[in-house]
Design a protein around this nucleic acid. Structure first.
Lengths: 119, 119
DNA sequence: TAACTAGTTAGAGTATAGTCTAAGTCAAGC
DNA sequence: GCTTGACTTAGACTATACTCTAACTAGTTA
């Protein structure tokens, strides 16, 4: 049998951009599952974990609080497709609202700048 | 002389959407100036204060931390137009990055949803 | 074998941004 | 003149999300 991608916490940290502290913290608050450990008790992560962590980061960066992300990943792990779509639909609406807000803030900021530089 | 708009903290709270606690908190951390007080020691706010608070809210909602907002409002009060434009330019760039990121997250989310609903 | 590196744990500490409480003052209406 | 309601203060408390420390272990390298 050939080896599947297996990595320790440092590599997952590098790949995901999250610190080792944060990864362990996410495990502590049960946002991430406890991974398998090797004979020394060190965490072993695979490609699937990278995928999950990156998706969590995506949700987090778009403003979803960790508790909500937890609900989402739970539904995901439970294969509850209905719940997942429902949550993503809501998330999508929020993103679109955010998009509008930011557009608005850009306008305001540009107006302020124009006024400032014109004066 | 006719009366200029004068309001107490409750009305400023209503007009701005910030809680009374938050307004006093912003004063405490020196984000907002101490307003004038009436004979009973109650804060009096004017139209200019509403404007400032709304602008602070705008900056905050677009992700600027309070400490940064403080720097900005300081430059604004100092009439340091150069500093203000500089800060707003940086802010604008961040907003545009945010806009791109959100666009990206919307795409990802829509893709996930399509996959989920198609399957 | 001794040092070095990377990992482990529980739990303490930090940063940011509020949020609320207790105890009090003051003006208006009944 | 007393209750009611809106205000005042200092300071304690909460929530969210990390971030780090101390004390330890296990494997590798000179």
């Amino acid at each position: 049998m050939d080896k599947v991608t297996v990595m320790k916490i440092s590599q997952l940290s590098q790949k995901s951009g999250l610190s080792k502290f944060t990864i362990r913290y996410y495990e502590k608050i049960k946002l991430l599952d406890k991974p398998q450990k090797d004979q020394s008790g060190h965490r072993n992560y695979g490609a699937k974990d990278v995928e999950i962590v990156n998706w969590v980061t995506c949700l987090k960066k778009s403003g979803m609080p960790l508790e909500k992300i937890k609900t989402y990943t739970k539904a995901y792990k439970d294969n509850d497709a209905n719940k997942v779509s429902e949550l993503l639909d809501i998330h999508l609406m929020k993103l679109k609202k955010q998009q509008k807000d930011i557009e608005h803030y850009i306008e305001i900021t540009e107006k302020k700048l124009k006024k400032l530089k014109g004066a």
